[in-house]
Amino acid sequence: MSNYPRDEFDAIEEHSARHGVHRSSLDPQRRSLMPLMVVGVVALCVGLLAFFIMPKMFNTTTPPAAVVAQSSTAAPSATAAPATPSAAPSTAPAETPTPTPTPTPTPTPTAVVDKTVPVAIFNAAGVSGLAASYAGRVQADGWMVSQSANWAGQPQATSVIFYSDVAQKGNAEALSALLGIPALLETPELGVPLAVVLGPGA
């Protein structure tokens, strides 16, 4: 039997668990706890950050600036003077507004007709007996006729009732309605209070 020199493969420990060059150790290796501790510390830091820092960064319940300003301005006034107590609710019934009456227009007083004022009747139409005919109608209505004659003034184009002043206007209007003569003219030149001048077509 040949004797070979001893090498590294011939040195075998008595209690070694290795059984060959390509066999892995059969003893379970102890795992290190350092990575697990690092992961735990990092997780703890993340949790603390999320609990304390994140709510302040994303706080949506902050009151608006207008509300903060209002509360800051209302605080001194509340401390400056105490609020007066509100009055007790009134038990009296509310007064209903009275409607304002609309003013009724006052009727214009009608002019007083004085039929005792003498009326002069003149014929300017050239028709015989015309003045006497109208004088009869005026007297039948209660008027007093002072004279009935032909017209000696300027020719008239139509019938006219003359009155001397404003006080006789009511009487002139009454004669106008009675005789159907719409033309009225104020003039003191005739010297009579009322004068009926009968023109063409009367």
Rank of each mutant, 00 (worst) to 15 (best):
Y4A: 14
P118G: 11
T110L: 15
V21E: 14
H15Y: 09
G40C: 15
F122Y: 15
D141F: 00
A174W: 06
V67H: 09
P99L: 12
A149E: 09
A17N: 14
T108R: 04
D27N: 13
A87R: 07
T96F: 04
G201M: 00
L184T: 12
V42T: 07
F58Y: 12
V21T: 13
T91N: 01
T61F: 12
P55V: 03
T62L: 14
V196G: 02
S24L: 11
A183P: 04
F58M: 13
T60R: 07
F52P: 00
D114M: 00
K56C: 10
R137K: 15
I12E: 14
H15V: 08
N3R: 12
T60C: 03
P188R: 12
L36N: 11
L178H: 05
R6K: 01
A78S: 11
R6A: 06
G20T: 00
L194A: 04
A88N: 09
V119S: 05
V112M: 03
Q156H: 05
S77P: 06
A17P: 13
T84K: 12
V127D: 07
A172P: 10
Q156N: 05
P193W: 02
T91Q: 06
A177P: 00
L194T: 01
G20H: 02
V113W: 02
G180R: 05
S71Y: 02
K169F: 11
G180I: 01
T96E: 04
P101F: 02
A92I: 03
A81L: 12
A140V: 02
A92S: 10
M37T: 14
N59K: 08
P55S: 04
P193E: 05
V138A: 11
D141E: 08
L26Q: 12
N171C: 03
E186V: 13
T100L: 07
R137H: 08
P93Y: 01
A78K: 13
F58N: 09
L44Y: 09
G199L: 08
M34F: 14
